[in-house]
């Protein structure tokens, strides 16, 4: 996060303002449109009457209707409000869990001396490379033995135990960039490790905490595999799982309601992107983070 400046700003004189740049801008604008076309078309189709979806390539609905939203909202017997609430609970807890547990571990790795520290750090890095399929079945058996199937616990509890090592790694990198003189001064003033962690490191680490929070939220919100394994009762479905149930339940021609709910499911992620674009882009640039 330190060495790479991803804010995209160059010195003003380096920016080509001349007309020579125009063809490039036209090409880039066309490419942008092509990239976004499917998404924009889904958005516009969700407001079109059902019969217009198949006959119309345009991004502008001839007649705007909310019928697809109304039909989709109640499409699975239980209304989508429930699924949004479920997703929000799971994602919210995942954010809290990841922030708390990962920052504790990262502080230990970055600042504290203890036996076997290097060994555990290497083990933590090792888990980054491990495909989750390897732990899948024993974890499932474990959660079954605990009686946690069809609850949110299997999706949430591991986050409170810092299983997403990626965030630990990200935070360690950031903590190491904070000057040690600050801790040393605090030790002289009689601060223990907890005070250093709570009153010095965390307040200084807002950028990395924000990035971790945003990515935890987005990834958990989008997660399909975990809920698919653990949530069986429709009332417990998260939004992606409900959408999948909706695909299976709808007939060939009911794309309108499906699109409407798909659009709604993307709104929180899109909103997070608009609000925290800088954190997201910097986070990726800093570490190449992508699940």
């Amino acid at each position: 996060m330190k060495t790479i400046s991803a804010d995209g700003r160059l010195a003003p004189e380096a920016i080509d303002r001349s007309w020579r740049a125009l063809p490039k801008h036209i090409a880039l604008a066309l490419a942008s449109l092509a990239m976004l076309y499917p998404l924009l078309w889904m958005l516009s189709s969700s407001f079109k009457p059902e019969d217009e979806i198949f006959s119309d390539l345009s991004l502008w609905p001839k007649a705007v209707t909310l019928a697809s939203y109304v039909e989709g909202w109640y499409g699975l017997g239980i209304n989508f409000g429930r699924f949004f609430l479920n997703s929000l609970i799971v994602s919210g807890l995942a954010v809290v869990g990841n922030l708390a547990a990962c920052s504790l571990a990262a502080f230990a790795f970055a600042r504290l001396e203890f036996p076997l520290r290097k060994f555990w750090f290497a083990a933590m890095l090792g888990t980054l490379m491990l495909p989750y399929h390897v732990t899948l079945i024993p974890q499932y058996v474990l959660f079954q033995k605990l009686g946690w199937l069809n609850t949110f616990w299997p999706l949430v509890v591991p986050k409170f135990m810092a299983v997403d090592a990626f965030f630990i790694f990200l935070m360690v990198q950031f903590f190491r960039g904070i000057p040690r003189e600050l801790d040393e001064a605090a030790v002289i003033d009689g601060c223990g490790p907890w005070r250093i962690y709570w009153s010095i490191m965390l307040p200084l680490s807002k950028p990395v905490l924000a990035a971790a929070a945003i990515f935890s939220f987005i990834w958990t919100w989008d997660d399909f595999f975990g809920p698919l394994l653990y949530l069986t009762d429709v009332a417990n479905y998260t939004v992606p799982l409900a959408l999948r149930g909706f695909v299976d339940a709808t007939s060939r021609s009911a794309w309108g309601p499906l699109f409407a709910m798909s659009v709604l499911s993307l709104v929180p992620v899109f909103a997070a992107f608009l609000m925290f674009q800088r954190h997201i882009i910097e986070g990726i640039a800093a570490s190449g983070l992508k699940r």
Binding site: A100, A101, C102, L104, A105, F107, A108, F109, L112, F114, W120, M124, P158, F160, M161, A162, V163, I168, P193, Y197
Partner: peptide, 8 residues
């Protein structure tokens, strides 16, 4: 500090 991660 490491306890939650270690347990996990």
């Amino acid at each position: 500090f490491l306890a939650p991660w270690l347990a996990g």
